[in-house]
Amino acid sequence: MEYKEPHSSGALAAICTNLSKACDKQMRPTEAGLFGKLAAYFSQSAGVAGPVSFNDLDTCITSDTESGYVAVETRAQQVGDRGALRCVTWGKKVTTIHKSVLVRYAKQGDALMEGNNLYVCEACGFIAIAKEVPELCPICKAPASRFTKI
C-alpha cells in the first residue's frame, strides 16, 4: 500500500503518543519511553504560523463535520471497516461538542468555566465542563478513572 503525503510533525507526534500508549498497555515501558521521545521531538518541531483565534478552530471543525468525517464514514461503510466507523461515531460526537463549547464560550466568556472544572476523556476526547468528574463518559462509556483534569 502506498499513501501520498508524508505526515506533518503534529500528526507524527500524535502517531507516536498513540504507539507509546499501546506499548504501555503491552507492558513494554522501554518501547513506550522511546516512542515518547520521538513524540517530544515532533511536538517541539510542530507549530502554527501566525496569530490564531477561536474562529480558526471553528473553521476546522466545520470542515471536519461537513467533509472529513463524511469521507471516512462513506468509504468505511462501503468496505465494512467497523473500526474506522467506531472512530467516526465517537469523533463526530466529540467534534460537535467542541463546536458547542466554542459557541457557549463566545456567548458567556469566562463565566462558562466559573465554579467548574474541565475534564477530558482519554479514550475519546470528550470535554466535560462540570464540578465533578463524570462517572461514565457519555460518548464512549469509559469510567471516571480515564478522565484527565485540565
Binding site: V101, L118, V120
Partner: peptide, 29 residues
C-alpha cells in the same frame, strides 16, 4: 481568557488525532 478551555480542546484534539492514527494503520507498535 479561555486559555484553560483552549488547553482542554488541544488535549482533546490529541486524543482524537491518536484515534485516527490507530485506525489509519498505526494500531500495533
Amino acid at each position: 481568557g479561555g486559555a484553560k478551555l483552549a488547553k482542554a480542546i488541544a488535549h482533546s484534539d490529541r486524543v482524537l488525532a491518536e484515534d485516527c492514527a490507530r485506525e489509519a494503520r498505526y494500531m500495533l507498535p
